[in-house]
Every structure is written in structure tokens, then in C-alpha cells.
Design a protein around this nucleic acid. Structure first.
Length: 585
RNA sequence: GGACCUGUGGUGCAGCCUGGAGUGCACGCCGGCCUGUCAAGCCGGAGGUCGCGGGUUCAAAUCCCGUCAGGUCCGCCA
């Protein structure tokens, strides 16, 4: 039906007779006998010169036959990739008519999210989504090539899996043949891939769909895609190497340049410096420890386990209401309070106004409670300059760090498309993360994560301080993925289960098929999973992973195009043995 | 479960704070004109349950309450 793509035509094609197919993107009608039709296919747009276009409308599907010609002098369009040429002497065959699109398909035009999703098939005609879907495909292809080259075997695992309470909420699938029983959709192929290690597959990967029934966010959909990896007879460094190779290959395939290898950082260091386990290295504003400067302070609010600060460059002119807003934000994040300090010209500086000079070089509600040495020390420790704003949080150590880490993101994070690609390996995550209602430690990663060899004897004594062989890959402040070395020895697994407060019977019931399999010769193994929606979004410069997914859901989990989720017909419910309870109220 | 923002012809907005006739802008749509435009231009026209429900008021797009939808975030996401 066609001989060429619209977007690939250039000056080198002049003189060629072409047949093109696509959609009418725009139409500029000059008279009954001269019109310009911009024809669009997946590769781009080219201008066609037509003898009259009165019967054409936007988004009509057409086949154009004509000759590629150089545009007349002065009519070249530099903003169009094909702008040096046009297709002239065109005959236009209408393959299908179209109603006017529900929203403008011009790239500069924005439409409401609900309408975009309702007419996703129209939205996807735009360059933005076309480009993102192609990029996603490029990434997938590069990853498959990389994993295959590294000797990995792609294995598919079931979507109809078994409930494994613990972790994310699962989507349930009723069984028709065994009424009252359910499959669940896998929140990840975690257990399946460990079984593949017992099976001797040795090096497994899969571009796997994962499903979690948790609330949606800009970087979270119900269903998402991971590069899932597991390998036997490996240590942490091996796993990081496999992942690094695949991810950097994928980035290189998209950008044409191999990025810097990820920076290494322990979880502890990330928390101390950035107040988060997913540090964004594209900008500064790192946390400053004020403990030393304030060691002997008389100000009660600063007599705390930790006193930390961030410096916001040039923000000293923030309005009082903005500062009040920051205080509220800090409180909502769990801080007891937030102290702000405007750094102004130092005392004695001729440019300082009289009232400011009286409080030395800090303008703050608490300045009067601080000694001159403390004020100077704070400014020096933070490396602050006049015009900067300091934000100080005092309190329990981890919480103070996290609050400031979030404020740092709120105030400093650049747009997603700026600042390059800064990969970070965050290593030595704690094995446990807080206590549940019954006072038992909760697994930070999952219950099969190997404790750090040096911390094994702490399991019984001080579980919360036990480090693990778990690690995250972070890119520009987004958690791209996580993984760990798994426990393959029954004695250590029992110890961890015991620490988690999981009895042997309970472990047997929940994970018996895994621990049972482990008795038949489980190799040491470990793995990782990389979120490909997030990776693609970051490479595409998108703030929301919806933009790299063909058919995403809204934040309330709906699909405006299909109307899903919908009630099931009574007949279907009966067949599944399911009754619907009256709505809660 | 919670907080905040948004909802006005097909689309994107302004109007709302400070109530007074659905008023306005841009795009699109329909008709006409126009032989080198390119987000074409010019002229004319059509198109509205101001998300929905209730309340206050002589009077509500505007104020109040509720609700629905979309978005961002907290909780949640081993």
C-alpha cells in the first residue's frame, strides 16, 4: 500500500515517486486548487501539496501518491524534520473518514487526563506517546540482548499464583473448578524464581508483569513491568554486575552514550547525607549534622538525639507564609517542628539593616536563644551564604533525617528531564524495618533476605540493627529496583522466621513449598528486579509512568476507555460461587 | 483511611476571592473567500445541565454542605 514512511523523507529522496499512508494531521486550504496537507504516520509528518482538499478533514485515514520535491526557495520549514521537502502532485485516496478528534493532537496542546485515557487510541497517535512506546521497546530489546549475552535464560512464570500473605496486597482470582478457592496474581515472581534456582536454571531472567493492589502514584500502577533476575552461586558483587550491565546497555541503546557506572553508598550513608534511601544526586542541599556546633546549647528545642539542617540556596527571601507552610509540611512528615533561619548579611556589614544586625547574621524566631558562636557555627557548618535559607530539624535521628530529606526533595528537586542520569547503588539495607502491632520486627525487603555475615549474632539480641545483603538501584531519586542475596540454609531461615515472629507451623503453611524445595539442594543464590516503567519514564523525561504505558489506569484504578472495573454479571458470579456483600456504611 | 488542587460550549483557559441576564479569550467545528502555507489568513455562523445533589439568598458559575470524576501527596507499596 505504501513505499515509504512520512518522517524519513529528505532532500536525498527528491524526484522519487512515493506512496504514503497515514492520518491527516493538518490541512491548510488556500483555494479550490491549492492546499497543503500534513500527513502523519508513526515516523513523523510530511507536507503534501494537493489540488484541493475540500473533502479532507482532520484525522482522515488516507493514502497519498506523489513525488518528493525540494521545497521552493523561502518555503523550507526548519521546525519540521522533513521540512526541506514536500510531496507534490498528490493524488489522495480516502481510506477512512474520521470524526473530529475529541481533543487537539498538536504536540503543544494538553488535554485532561480522563479524556486522554478515554480516547487513548487517539492520544497514542501523538509523537510523545509514539516516541515513548518505541523507546520502551528499544529498552526491552537491549535488555533481552544483554541478559542473553550474559548467559541468562528467559523463563516465564505463572500469572495464576498462590496467595502468600506478607507484603503487598494481592489481586485475587476466583477458581471456578474449586469454588471458594482463589489464585492470586503475583506481586512479583519472587518465589517462582527462587524455585528455578533450586531447579538448576542457575541464571534466570524475565521481563515480568507484576501486580499489586496498592494505591496508585505518579510512579506506581497496579500492574507494572520488571526486569526480574536471579542467579545461583553468586555474591552481591555478581548480582550488581549483572544488573549494571543490563541497565547501562539499555540506557546506551536509548541515548547512544554509556552513562557513568552507579555510585556506591550504604543505606546508612544515604540516610545521613540525603535523608532518604533513594538519594537524588543531581543537586546538592545535603544534610548537615549540627550536633557538634550545638553540643552545649541552652536552647531546649535543640537538645535532641539529632539536630540536622539543610541549606536552601537563595531562599532567604521566602515569604512568611511560605515558611509557615514549610513548618506545617515538616510537622505533617512527623517532625516536632521546623526552625527556619534566613541568612542575612553579617553584623557590621554596612549593607545590613539595623534590626537585622542586632541578631547577628541569622533572621529566625529562635535566633535570640542562640549564642554568637552557635549562630556562626551553624552558618559555617552548612556552608551558607547571605541570601540562603537554613532549615533545621531536631529530634529522633532517623526521623529528623527523613523529614529534611523530604524537604530537600520538595525544595530542590529539578525537573525529571534535567541534570543527567545519576545512578546509585544503595547497599547494606537493614534486614528489618520497624515493629508490627505485636512488637515483632518486620522484614524490610522480604523474609528470605540473607543477613549480613557480620551481624548474624545480632539477630537474637538487636534485630533492628542487623544489616542485610539487600540493595537498591536508584536513579535520580527514583527507586528503580531492589534485590538481595537469599537465605539458602535452613538454620538461618529458621532464625529469621523466629525473629519475625513466624512460627514453624506458620512458615510451613505460608512458604512450605519453598522451604520444602530448599531441602532438596538449594544453591546459594540472589537476584534483583528493575522497574522498567520507571526506567523508561526517566529516560523519556516523563514525570509519570502513565506516559510510557499504552493503557494505564487512573489514580482510582479505573480505565476510562473500557470502563473497568465493572460489576460481573450474576450468571458469572454464580458460576464462580461468589456473592457480593452489601456496600459498607 | 487522610490532606490539597482541579472540574465553565468539542478542547484549553479567564470569570469565582468581592453574588446581579452564561459574559469573555484562544483553538476546534460548519459555511464562504483565498494559488506557497506550515499551530495558514480573512469574513460569517452554530454550539452551554458552569461535574452532580442539596442549602443560604430577592438573586448562585461565584458563598456553604455533601457527592462524583481527574491529578499530586501522606498512609500503603515484604
Amino acid at each position: 500500500m505504501r513505499t515509504r514512511w512520512c518522517g524519513e523523507l529528505g532532500i536525498g529522496d527528491v524526484g522519487e515517486a512515493v506512496e504514503l499512508c497515514g492520518w491527516v494531521a493538518r490541512r491548510r486550504e488556500h483555494s479550490a486548487h491549492l492546499a497543503f496537507v500534513d500527513l502523519r504516520d508513526r515516523t513523523g509528518i510530511v507536507q503534501c501539496v494537493v489540488d484541493g482538499a475540500a473533502d479532507l478533514r482532520a484525522e482522515y485515514v488516507v493514502r497519498v501518491t506523489g513525488t518528493v520535491t525540494a521545497r521552493p526557495e523561502g518555503t523550507v520549514n526548519p521546525s519540521l524534520a522533513t521540512g526541506q521537502v514536500e510531496v507534490s502532485g498528490c493524488a489522495v485516496e480516502i481510506l477512512n473518514e474520521a470524526e473530529p478528534p475529541p481533543f487537539s493532537l498538536e504536540e503543544w496542546s494538553e488535554a485532561d487526563e480522563a479524556i486522554r485515557l478515554r480516547y487513548r487510541f487517539v492520544d497514542m497517535r501523538r509523537e510523545r506517546l509514539q516516541k515513548n512506546l518505541v523507546m520502551r521497546s528499544t529498552i526491552n530489546a537491549a535488555i533481552r540482548a544483554s541478559m542473553f549475552a550474559q548467559g541468562f535464560t528467559e523463563v516465564e512464570t505463572p500469572l495464576l499464583w498462590t496467595p502468600t500473605p506478607e507484603g503487598a496486597r494481592e489481586f485475587a482470582v476466583p477458581s471456578r473448578l474449586q469454588q471458594g478457592s482463589f489464585y492470586v496474581l503475583p506481586q512479583s515472581p519472587q518465589i517462582a524464581k527462587q524455585l528455578l534456582m533450586v531447579a538448576g536454571v542457575d541464571r534466570y531472567y524475565q521481563i515480568a508483569r507484576c501486580l499489586r493492589d496498592e494505591d496508585l502514584r505518579a510512579d506506581r500502577q497496579f500492574e507494572f513491568t520488571q526486569l526480574d533476575i536471579e542467579a545461583s552461586f553468586v555474591g552481591v558483587e555478581d548480582v550488581l554486575g549483572f544488573v549494571e550491565e543490563a541497565v547501562l546497555d539499555a540506557v546506551e541503546a536509548v541515548t547512544g552514550a554509556r552513562p557513568e557506572v552507579p555510585v556506591r553508598m550504604t543505606w546508612r550513608e544515604a540516610l545521613e547525607r540525603f535523608g532518604t534511601d533513594k538519594p537524588d544526586l543531581r543537586y546538592g542541599m545535603e544534610l548537615t549534622d549540627l550536633a557538634e556546633v550545638l553540643a552545649g546549647t541552652g536552647f531546649n528545642a535543640f537538645k535532641a538525639e539529632a539536630v540536622r539542617a539543610i541549606c536552601v540556596p537563595g531562599a532567604a527571601d521566602s515569604s512568611r507564609s511560605k515558611l509557615d507552610g514549610l513548618v506545617e509540611r515538616a510537622k505533617s512528615l512527623g517532625a516536632a517542628g521546623l526552625v527556619w533561619m534566613r541568612v542575612v548579611a553579617p553584623a557590621g556589614d554596612d549593607t545590613a539593616t539595623e534590626p537585622r544586625a542586632k541578631v547577628a547574621d541569622l533572621e529566625s524566631p529562635v535566633a535570640k536563644f542562640l549564642s554568637d558562636d552557635e549562630r556562626n557555627g551553624i552558618v559555617a557548618a552548612c556552608g551558607a551564604k547571605p541570601g540562603d535559607l537554613l532549615l533545621v530539624v531536631a529530634g529522633e535521628h532517623d526521623r529528623a533525617c527523613r523529614v529534611l530529606g523530604q524537604l530537600r526533595v520538595d525544595l530542590g528537586r529539578p525537573p525529571v528531564a534535567e541534570g543527567g542520569l545519576r545512578f546509585v547503588w544503595v547497599t547494606e539495607f537493614p534486614l528489618f524495618d520497624g515493629l508490627d502491632e505485636e512488637g515483632n520486627p518486620m522484614a524490610a525487603h522480604h523474609p528470605f533476605t540473607m543477613p549480613h555475615a557480620d551481624d548474624l549474632d545480632l539477630l537474637g539480641k538487636d534485630p533492628l540493627s542487623v544489616r542485610s545483603l539487600a540493595y537498591d538501584l536508584v536513579l535520580n531519586g527514583w527507586e528503580l529496583g531492589s534485590g538481595s542475596i537469599r537465605i539458602h540454609r535452613a538454620d538461618i531461615q529458621s532464625q529469621v522466621f523466629a525473629t519475625l515472629g513466624i512460627s514453624e507451623e506458620e512458615a510451613e503453611e505460608r512458604f512450605g513449598f519453598l522451604t520444602g524445595a530448599f531441602r532438596y539442594g538449594a544453591p546459594p543464590h540472589g537476584g534483583f528486579a528493575v522497574g522498567l516503567d520507571r526506567l523508561t519514564a526517566l529516560l523519556a523525561g516523563e514525570e509519570n509512568i502513565r506516559e510510557v504505558i499504552a493503557f494505564p489506569k487512573t489514580q482510582s484504578g479505573a480505565d476510562p476507555m473500557t470502563g473497568a472495573p465493572k460489576p460481573l454479571a450474576d450468571r458469572s458470579l454464580r458460576e464462580l460461587g461468589i456473592g457480593i456483600l452489601p456496600p459498607k456504611r
